[in-house]
């Protein structure tokens, strides 16, 4: 009961200070987990590029994944250990995916697809830890990752095929009358790719974490009402547990979808003719 009272006092203080309705920190705020906090202030060329909790978790993601892949494969055993098996499985998973989608030539993009998949996967999974920040729950991060893919597609397509790359927008076998319409549709669908790619990942992570937080919040608020509330809290608690499992699935699935779509878009750069 003590924390609640303190929270109420704080709320009153907040009201006095800001002159508006302010929630107490004890109240569950599903958005708070996405807040970005500065750790080290940095300002370059008028841009605020502080080292934040988001940056910290990017570093953690990269260091953790790199260290795992490095030490798992350091023995280079012909008969792999468990760790090495995991590293090999992730390698072959992406290699097969890329080979199926983009053919043998697509393998030149393997490091890109592999690093994108591992980065997104590990960032998503790290976000599942309580109090951890989810890097991929911010649209700008997923949008930048999507732009890396699209710019690679456009850059390589133009470099490899020149202006023939734009055949991508002109499907063969379409009647001349329909051609402007079809080309317009193709262009729009191409331009919407980075948006759909980034929003899909961002929205999934964001929505999942909010839902999880809301259900966990129900548990806390209901428990505050005594025995009856605690009994009632069992339902949202079960939901929270189920959602946690679902979120782990979504974490993997979204990384997988991101990698698959990357492979398909890269295929367009390699073979622009439909």
């Amino acid at each position: 009961m003590v924390p609640v009272r303190r929270g109420l006092e704080r709320t009153e203080a907040g009201c006095g200070l800001r002159g508006q309705q302010v929630a107490s920190p004890d109240k569950v705020d599903p958005i708070h987990q996405f807040a970005i906090n500065k750790i080290v202030d940095l300002n370059i060329g008028g841009f605020d590029v502080s080292f934040t909790n988001s940056s910290l978790f990017m570093v953690v993601t990269v260091v953790l994944t790199s260290a795992f892949l490095y030490f798992a494969t350091s023995s280079r055993a012909v008969v792999p250990s468990r760790m090495q098996s995991v590293a090999e499985m992730s390698y072959e998973f992406i290699a097969n995916m890329l080979r199926d989608a983009a053919g043998k030539q697509g393998m030149r993009f393997f490091p890109l697809v592999f690093s994108l998949f591992m980065f997104v996967l590990v960032a998503n999974l790290l976000g599942m830890f309580p109090y951890f920040f989810t890097v991929t729950s911010h649209i700008i991060v997923t949008f930048c990752l999507a732009m890396i893919v699209i710019l690679t597609v456009i850059g390589y397509g133009l470099y490899k095929h020149g202006l023939h790359f734009f055949n991508l927008f002109v499907p063969s076998g379409v009647p001349a009358i329909l051609l402007p319409l079809v080309v317009a549709i193709e262009v729009i669908s191409f331009l919407s790719r980075p948006i759909s790619l980034s929003v899909r990942l961002f929205a999934n992570m964001l929505a999942g974490h909010i839902t999880l937080k809301v259900f966990s919040g129900f548990v806390v608020s209901l428990s505050a009402f005594g025995i009856g509330g605690m009994a009632g809290a069992v339902l949202p608690l079960g939901m929270a547990v189920a959602l946690t499992g679902l979120e782990f699935l979504v974490s993997f699935l979204q990384a997988y979808v991101f990698a698959v779509l990357t492979c398909m878009y890269l295929n367009d750069a390699i073979h622009p003719g439909h």
């Binding site: 958005i31 996405f34 807040a35 970005i36 940095l42 370059i44 841009f47 605020d48 590029v49 502080s50 080292f51 934040t52 988001s54 940056s55 990017m58 570093v59 993601t61 990269v62 994944t65 790199s66 892949l69 490091p111 890109l112 592999f114 690093s115 591992m118 980065f119 890097v135 729950s137 911010h138 649209i139 700008i140 991060v141 930048c144 990752l145 890396i148 961002f202 964001l206």
Partner: peptide
């Protein structure tokens, strides 16, 4: 927070740094 543009430069820069290093290392 995800639509807070003031945090975008920082996120873009640190993503570029970390992901760049990660990509090169891999």
């Amino acid at each position: 927070p995800p639509f807070d543009t003031s945090t975008f430069p920082s996120q873009i820069l640190w993503l570029a740094i970390t992901f760049g290093i990660f990509y090169i290392f891999l």
